[in-house]
Design a protein around this nucleic acid. Structure first.
Lengths: 109, 109
DNA sequence: AAGTTTTATCGTAATATTGCAATATATAAA
DNA sequence: TTTATATATTGCAATATTACGATAAAACTT
C-alpha cells in the first residue's frame, strides 16, 4: 500500500540509487554545472543564478551535501561550496558497465 | 506552493535529471544489474528475482524503457528486455566531469 | 473457442519530494 | 549592542513516486 520497500535491496543497490537520486533534479544539475564552471567556490549567488527561492536552493544544497557530492566550508559570514566527487565514483563505474554492454552484447534484442 | 518547477531549466539539465531519476531506485538498479549479469535477455523472471509484485516490476521496467535505458522485444507470449545504453551517455560524461574536478581543482575547499 | 501464460494498465492508498513564506541562527560591520 | 548579511530550519501545501490488488490485453496451446 505505499512507498519505499528499499530495505529489501542490498546496501550497494541502495547506495547507487541514492547517488542517482541526488542528481535527479534539474536544479541540482544546475548547481553542479555552476560549481564546475566557476571552478573556485561559490556561495549564495546561486540564489541569483537559479529561478528558485533561497530556502529551496539551501535545501537542494543540503541534499547534494548529504550525498557527498559537494562540500561546504564556512568562510566568514558566507559558506563556500564546491565539488567533492569522491562519493560518486561507484555510480560512474556502474554506468560505465552499462555503456560497455553495447559493444560486447550487441546480439541481444 | 508545490512541486515541479523544472520547466525553468534547460533541456540538457532536464535530460540529465531524468536519466538520473531513472536510476534513482534500488529496484531499478537491481533490474539493470540482473540484465547485466544474465547478459542475454530476460523477461518476467525478474518477478522471481526481486521482492516486488509483478505490477510494480512492470512499472519500473516502463520507467527504464521510457528513459531509454532498456529495450523490450516481444518474443512469443513473453517480452525480452535488455540493456540499451545509448541514451545514458550524457549522464556518464557529466559525472566524468565531476570526477575530473578532484584532480584539477583540489585547491578549492 | 476456451484455457493458460505473460505482461500492461487502472485505481487507489501510503509515502516522498518540491517549493516557499516565515522564522531562526550565525557571522560581520557599525 | 544594534544592524546588516548570509544561510539554515520549520511548517505547510501541492505534487510525484511507490506499491499492489484487480483487471485487461496479447499470444500461445489445446
Amino acid at each position: 500500500m505505499g512507498a519505499s520497500k528499499s530495505e529489501a535491496f542490498s546496501a550497494e543497490q541502495q547506495n547507487l540509487a541514492a547517488l542517482a537520486k541526488a542528481l535527479a533534479h534539474p536544479a541540482r544539475i544546475a548547481i553542479i554545472q555552476h560549481l564546475l564552471q566557476v571552478d573556485s567556490c561559490i556561495c549564495g549567488d546561486l540564489v541569483h543564478e537559479l529561478p528558485l527561492s533561497q530556502p529551496t536552493i539551501s535545501q537542494h544544497l543540503k541534499e547534494l551535501k548529504l550525498a557527498g557530492i559537494i562540500k561546504g566550508n564556512i568562510e566568514g559570514s558566507s559558506i563556500c561550496y564546491c565539488i567533492h566527487p569522491n562519493q560518486i565514483a561507484p555510480l560512474h563505474s556502474f554506468i560505465s558497465q552499462l555503456l560497455k554492454c553495447t559493444e560486447t552484447n550487441s546480439s541481444c534484442c
